[in-house]
Design a protein around this nucleic acid. Structure first.
Length: 263
DNA sequence: ATCGGTACCTGCACGC
DNA sequence: TGCGTGCAGGTACCGA
């Protein structure tokens, strides 16, 4: 669920945590903790949260005097401030002011404590919202995979997921099965521009809430009302009226207009 | 080095 | 009502 716009919205809603001290942490479900619970709990105790940042789809809490708390929301993860504990509350952070909890019904999300950002996180591609055009074009030029797979690949570009990959390819008029390295420069430019546009618009709408997504105050986003192809199978294309098709690419539901989107 | 397929979970909508 | 099926915002890991 949570892709770049949703994670950005959560991060912004947690900005007030800068300066808060972590007094105690309770790991109720160890599956979602990456690392040793005793070490992680002891490391976090009495550390101060310096800031709340986004790294692709990761939420990063830099700590003083050192280290990081990382949270990935997976498909259904939620970070909530001062909310009631619930069935799927897996981690409870007691702060000097307030309580932060991690909930995740599907348990695909992860909480991780580290002294340095792990290599697998550092090696992710450039951020989808901040990459410059020349870098984006150069990376795309050497990729032979299908565009949909490529946009989902965080090692290529970090931040996009299933919703915004489909929405961006539609806006760019590019077929999800098109091969990256074969795209002409003007189409690459168009794709670059619409990726930034759709992400920026989604952030303004505070993300897309399909079923679970909420920010740390429990508020839903509204960008789902502005989706043009995602989960609009058989509905008319907003541009040409052709029924939107759904196919599987890389095992993910992929929505596109067969008339507007060309290889 | 890249790529595709599979596994990991719970919950919901749907058809019978 | 209940059951089986398919689907869901993600990533890690495996083998080709």
């Amino acid at each position: 669920m949570p892709e770049l716009p949703e994670v950005e919205t959560v991060v912004r809603s947690l900005a007030g945590l800068a300066g808060r001290k972590i007094l105690n942490v309770e790991f109720r479900q160890l599956r979602i903790l990456r690392g040793d619970p005793d070490w992680s709990g002891a490391f976090l105790q009495n550390r101060t949260i310096v800031a709340v940042e986004r790294y692709g789809k990761f939420i990063v809490f830099p700590l003083e005097p050192k280290g990081f708390l990382l949270v990935h929301l997976g498909m259904t993860g939620q970070l909530l401030m001062d909310a009631p504990l619930a069935k799927h509350t897996h981690t409870i952070f007691t702060l000097d002011e307030g309580v932060l909890q991690f909930r995740d019904s599907r348990q695909f999300g992860r909480v991780e404590v580290c002294e340095e950002l792990p290599a697998r996180v550092q090696k992710l591609g450039p951020d989808a919202l901040h990459v410059d055009f020349e870098t984006f074009a150069a990376l795309l030029k050497v990729r032979k995979s299908r565009m949909k797979s490529l946009l989902l690949n965080q090692d290529f570009l970090r931040g996009l997921g299933n919703i915004y990959a489909d929405e961006a390819l539609f806006r760019a008029g590019i077929h999800p099965l098109a091969i990256g390295s074969r795209l002409k420069k003007d189409r690459v430019r168009k794709l670059y521009d619409v990726i930034r546009a759709v992400l920026a618009e989604a952030i303004v709408s505070k993300g897309s809430s399909i079923s679970d997504y909420v920010d740390s105050n429990g508020d839903k986003g509204s960008f789902q009302d502005l989706h043009r192809v995602y989960r609009r199978t058989d509905k008319p294309c907003v541009v040409c009226g052709t029924p939107i098709r759904r196919i599987l690419v890389a095992q993910r539901g992929t929505h596109f207009c067969p008339k507007c989107q060309k290889s």
